[in-house]
Simulated assay, not measured.
Amino acid sequence: MRIRATVAAVSGALALSALAVPAAQADDAPSFREAAAAALEADRNAPAERSAFAAAAAIGDLDVSFSGLKIAAAVKVGTTNKVSTTVTYKIKHGADVDIKSADFATGPYIYKGSYEQPVNLLLGDNPATCTATSATTATCKGKIDVYPAYDELINSDSGTWRAGALALDYATEQFSDQGALGTTKVQRISRLTVNASPEPVKKGKTITVTGKLSRANWETHKYHGYSTQKVQLQFRKKNSSTYTTVKTIKTSTTGQLKTTVKATVDGYYRYNFAGTTTTPAIKAAGDFVDVK
Rank of each mutant, 00 (worst) to 15 (best):
K185V: 04
Y150V: 07
G68W: 02
S227T: 05
K90Y: 01
Q117Y: 10
S227C: 03
S17H: 06
Q232H: 13
A132W: 06
N272K: 15
A72Q: 14
Y268K: 09
Y269Q: 12
D157I: 02
A18T: 10
S190R: 04
T88I: 07
G211C: 15
D287H: 13
A74G: 10
A74N: 10
V21E: 01
I207G: 11
D27K: 13
H221G: 07
G107V: 00
L153N: 04
A171W: 06
L16I: 13
D63R: 01
E199A: 12
I71Y: 00
I249Y: 04
S158H: 12
E116I: 01
F273R: 03
A128G: 02
A180T: 07
V231D: 01
P198G: 06
T210G: 03
P22H: 05
T206R: 13
T251M: 08
Y115R: 00
G179T: 03
A24C: 02
F273Y: 12
R44T: 14
L233E: 10
I282T: 06
Q117E: 11
N195I: 05
T278I: 03
C130S: 14
P30A: 01
D125W: 01
K222C: 07
E116M: 00
Q229N: 02
A163H: 03
A132E: 15
A42P: 02
T242P: 04
K222R: 14
T6D: 13
D61W: 00
C140S: 02
Y243V: 12
G159M: 01
I59K: 00
Y109T: 01
A149C: 05
S197A: 11
S11N: 13
T245P: 04
I144T: 07
V265W: 11
I99K: 02
V209D: 05
T79K: 11
G60C: 01
G12M: 09
L62K: 07
N126V: 09
R4V: 10
A15L: 04
S67G: 14
P198V: 05
L123S: 00
A57E: 14
A73P: 08
T264I: 10
I207L: 11
I110T: 06
G107S: 03
K70W: 02
G255P: 07
V146S: 11
A132V: 08
P280C: 11
G107E: 09
Y170G: 10
N155Q: 09
K262P: 10
D151V: 04
G78Q: 04
H224I: 14
D61R: 14
S31E: 08
V265N: 15
R215E: 14
V246F: 04
H221F: 07
N272C: 15
S11W: 14
Y150C: 06
W161Y: 02
Y226R: 10
L123V: 06
T248W: 04
I207W: 12
A56L: 12
L166G: 06
D61K: 10
A48G: 14
N155F: 11
K230W: 08
R270M: 08
V246L: 12
A180C: 03
Y269C: 09
K258W: 08
R188V: 09
N272W: 15
D27R: 12
K212V: 09
S51H: 04
F104T: 00
A216M: 15
V77M: 13
N217R: 06
I110A: 05
